[in-house]
Design a protein around this nucleic acid. Structure first.
Length: 643
RNA sequence: GCCGGUGUAGCUCAGCUGGCAGAGCGAUUCCUUCGUAAGGAAUAGGCCGAGGGUUCAAAUCCCUCCACCGGCUCCA
């Protein structure tokens, strides 16, 4: 037998016999590790410990200390679910049951399940865990496997598709239950510390809407009950922060059935925040050399045919007929901006030309997709388009990335960056795409930013760098993008005159800082849990007179703090009630004034973090607010010393 | 768009084995003028998502549509 070499995470090569498995390799490293091996990661794929290795494979040994262990555990939990389901509903047919980022699901069919049924299944799952059944892997030949699944077309589908080449199929068995499965799994059902079935929904076989609809049950599993509880608390917290709930409670925005789905209405409180965001973006853009432009919402479809949108995007467009001529609401701002660029002649000295517009666009998303502000039909992009010479691309993109990261920093959001490459439906030649992707990659490599690759996720006209927001709860949301576009300038025949007095084609860069105001607003609402920084807060200060006698003084104070958004609580409530109300409205500062304050000409200040100070001078407070606002500080900090 | 669930007062929800439309919060009015997270009383408020059907009678049963929620597929 000849030896093969596998590569360990630290880069060293390990020589093992041909045909050696993950577990054999682990034993070759050390007997302790061999004994603890649960599974392996071979070439990035989580596999069973009995998987044979090939020469040159990248190998990571998975033990119960590894991050991947939880995936394995959840995969086994999916089997426990399936076993429990079949005990209670023998008619149920199984399809697939993988692990996911935060649990597992199992797609089943031939069984009617409702939310209420989950409890009984969960109880049965706990019994199975209690029984501590050994989980054993067995290899079964193809014929026998097909026989086992004589009445399960989905499993047969798997046998004839994914597992087409294999003569021996791996099955996992625990007690009376067995399932066709690649693995890996834990040693026994008793290893699963805690399980919870979460919800029930529907999915298509293989995710294709042409196929049968299956019942999908989502669940999760952890090593311990306390981990599960932490997870459930986190879900609860996320539910409490839901921007749809807070949007209603804080009167930020509404989506009304009468005015239409996916068409948000911004109430004054929401609009105040949007205006602050827009002012901030405008300042960043002006500082970065952008010129504001403005375009209408509606264009002749001639424009969309020229830009390629009609060909690639028409299903998502709102079209309307005007005097027998077809018009379309704009789904993107770029063609308008390209047309503006085309209105005059340009010298190479003029470039880069940078336009920006908070442009409202309309995209006819599938109805079932609409959700709060995260998915809507009308939204506003803080859209910038640059027209640059090829030699300016890298510098410009670097500047844009700087600006985007500044924005992340301002809001205390973490960034996750990815390069999205050519999608199936696209315009432009292979060479152009190749060139664009190479350039974006070069910028990212030079910048030293950590980034991933999203294959096939680019826009139809060019590749892009996607930024995702990571919020205070560690959740990820789609954020701004930077896109390189060689196609639009071509389609619009855009030119500038070069040093050589010849016409040249500029390159277009699409970029946003926020992405869309709607989605960014949603992220901020949930990120801050409605407790917006002072500069964003719709109501920045609320004056609470102790009794009606101080109304006059309160009005005087409101006038003196007139640079800010200051309201007076004028309902005849007790002070406790007024504070409670201001607190639930998440107002950063409460100014409390009674007879004492009025007499001394001072104020008492309380913030939403429940800190307070008396005998405060109005000037000192106002000066502080000025700097807190100008510096966009994240938390009210006038009373930072009062803790 | 597809699958499942849900639509009752401004909000959260009860009523749904058919028989007069309910509660809490909020709002309004009155009383209270209050010192750091809910003072008291009274009043108003509903085409029970929309349309059709069954029935002596429909919030309740049936059908169609609309919207929302959880997913699937797709995107900022």
């Amino acid at each position: 037998m000849s030896d093969i070499a596998v590569i360990l995470p630290d880069g060293t090569e390990l020589s093992v016999e041909e045909g050696a498995t993950v577990r054999d390799a682990a034993f070759a490293i050390g007997p302790g590790l061999g004994k603890d091996t649960v599974a392996g990661v071979v070439d990035g794929e989580l596999v069973d410990k009995e998987t044979p290795l090939h020469d040159g494979a990248d190998l990571v040994i998975v033990t119960d200390q590894s991050d991947e262990y939880l995936d394995v555990l959840r995969h086994s939990a999916a089997h426990v679910f399936a076993q429990a389901l079949q005990r209670l509903h023998p008619e149920a047919k199984l399809t697939i049951g993988p692990w996911t980022d935060d649990g597992f699901y199992y797609d089943v069919t031939s069984v009617d399940l409702e939310q209420e049924d989950l409890e009984a299944i969960e109880d049965e799952m706990r019994d199975i865990i209690e029984e501590d059944l050994d989980i054993e892997r067995a290899l079964v030949d193809r014929e026998e496997a097909l026989e086992k699944y004589a009445d399960n077309p989905y499993k047969r589908d798997i046998l004839e598709d994914e597992a087409a080449g294999d003569d021996e199929l791996s099955f996992y068995q625990q007690g009376e239950f067995e399932d066709l499965c690649k693995g890996p799994h834990v040693e026994s059902t008793g290893e699963i510390g805690a399980v919870k079935l979460l919800n029930i929904s529907a999915a298509y076989w293989r995710g294709d809407e042409e196929n049968d609809t299956l019942t999908r049950v989502y669940g999760t599993a952890f090593e311990s009950e306390s981990d599960l509880e932490a997870f459930l608390d986190m879900r609860e917290e996320a539910k409490e922060r839901d921007h749809r709930k807070l949007g209603q409670e804080l009167n930020l925005f509404a989506i009304d059935e009468t005015t239409g789905p996916g068409l948000p209405l911004y109430q004054p409180n929401g609009k105040r925040i949007l205006d602050e965001l827009a002012d901030y973006a405008k300042q960043l853009n002006l500082d970065a050399g952008y010129d504001p432009v403005e375009t209408p919402h509606l264009f002749r479809t001639e424009l969309w045919k020229k830009s390629g949108h009609y060909e690639n995007y028409v299903d998502d467009m709102f079209l309307l007929d005007v005097n027998d001529e077809e018009y379309g609401l704009k789904p993107m701002n770029c063609p308008g901006h390209a047309t503006i660029f085309d209105q005059q002649s340009w010298s190479y000295r003029d470039l880069p030309v940078r336009y920006f517009e908070d442009g409202k666009v309309y995209r006819k998303e599938q109805r079932g997709e609409l959700s709060g502000l995260s998915r809507v039909w009308s939204f506003t992009i803080d859209d910038g388009h640059l027209f640059v010479r090829p030699d300016q691309i890298e510098d410009e993109i670097n500047l844009i990335i700087d600006n985007i990261l500044t924005v992340f920093d301002t809001f205390g959001l973490d960034a996750e960056v990815a390069l999205a490459t050519r999608p199936e439906k696209s315009v432009g030649s292979d060479e152009i795409w190749e060139q664009a992707e190479t350039q974006l990659r070069a910028v990212l490599d030079d910048s030293g930013i950590d980034y991933g690759i999203e294959a096939g996720d680019g826009a139809f006209y060019g590749p892009k760098i996607d930024f995702a927001f990571k919020d205070a709860l560690g959740r990820k949301w789609d954020g701004p993008t930077v896109q390189l576009d060689f196609n639009m300038p071509d389609r619009f025949d855009l030119t500038y005159t070069g040093e050589d007095n010849e016409d040249h084609q500029p390159v277009m860069i699409h970029r946003a800082l926020y992405g869309s105001y709607e989605r960014f607003f949603m992220v901020l609402i949930e990120h801050f849990n409605g407790k917006f920084p002072f500069w964003l807060a719709p109501e920045q200060v609320r004056i609470l007179p102790i009794s009606d006698d101080q109304m006059g003084y309160a009005k005087k104070l409101q006038y003196e703090l007139g640079d800010f958004r200051v309201d007076i609580e004028d309902r005849s409530w007790t002070l406790g009630r007024k504070i409670r109300e201001a607190q639930t409205d998440r107002v950063p500062y409460m100014v409390i004034v009674g007879g004492d304050e009025e007499e001394d000409g001072t104020i008492s200040v309380r913030d939403r973090k429940e800190r307070e100070a008396k005998d405060v001078s109005v000037e000192a407070f106002r000066d502080h607010l000025r700097s807190e606002y100008d510096e966009k500080r994240p938390e009210p900090d006038f009373l930072a010393d009062a803790e």
